[in-house]
Amino acid sequence: MNLGHIDPALLLAALLVAATPILLAAIGELVVERAGVLNLGVEGMMITGAICGFAAAVETGSPGLGFLAAAGGGAVLALLFAGLTQFALANQVASGLALTLFGLGLSSLLGQGYVGIKPPPTPHLDLGPLGDLPFFGTVLFSHDIVVYLGLALVVAVWAGLKYTRSGRILRAVGENHDAAHALGYKVVRVRILAILFGGACAGLGGAYVSLVRVPQWTEGMTAGAGWIALALVVFASWRAGRVVLGAWLFGGVSVLQLNLQAAGVAIPVEYLSMSPYLITILVLVIMSANRSRAPGSLGRVFHASG
């Protein structure tokens, strides 16, 4: 065992990379839940995005197109959820579970021919002299564009929900759909758009796992990241800024346990691999004391006839 080999700068840089998939998925789900819809299919949309992005990147040779395809794949799957919950008025918990089960199957079907292939590398953004800064250069300015995109998306969602008219309409729909309907807002339309946005974000997060983080395709490779993203939204009390903190916490835990595995700590690998899930439970317990910030209409079926 040798902990001296763990470089803090590289550790922090890896933390940002590890946090990105759950950050993307969680910020998407946050918007969905603020619109009053609970989509438990994040894991299914993530894994579908992972294979769609991987396949598109391998076929075209362009990681950029891969990420686009991933967002599209996630959104298409989300559309199924939207159809079930908004038109067929199905139970949201059951529909979300169906989405996850279906997505896991679909992804392994699509991924048949892609096992063992290396995807085209996603280039790191060249930030000129910033990248040469000691310590901060490695930690902050040596990443690919998706890492920054994720952070920019959080700022955009925060500002969008707080300051724009459409953000306020979305929150109104989530807090009380009957009142929003009475005011003339299109509840179903707002929710469908939110669900599609959530699907696209989850798809991007999944593709980040298969194209950058691992980078490879294996069945079920998201390994619960979608569920951790769902927990993150609760952890963040449905506030965008806190999603970043939460994602970094989970990114930190998963990077740290990987480093401890590599350093040969005298704990069996399996116990270290459990830690992100156990930390998630712990955090959920701590945060669940305060549920007052949950959107008022979260998970309830809206039917205009009242």
Binding site: L84, S95, L97, L101, F102, G103, G105
Partner: peptide, 26 residues
Amino acid sequence: LPAAAIQVFQGMLLFFLLAVDLLTNY
């Protein structure tokens, strides 16, 4: 037939069940 195809099949079953359930309550 790939093993995953049957997994998709089972997932689809739950989807369609939830969708046609509309007829029970509405």
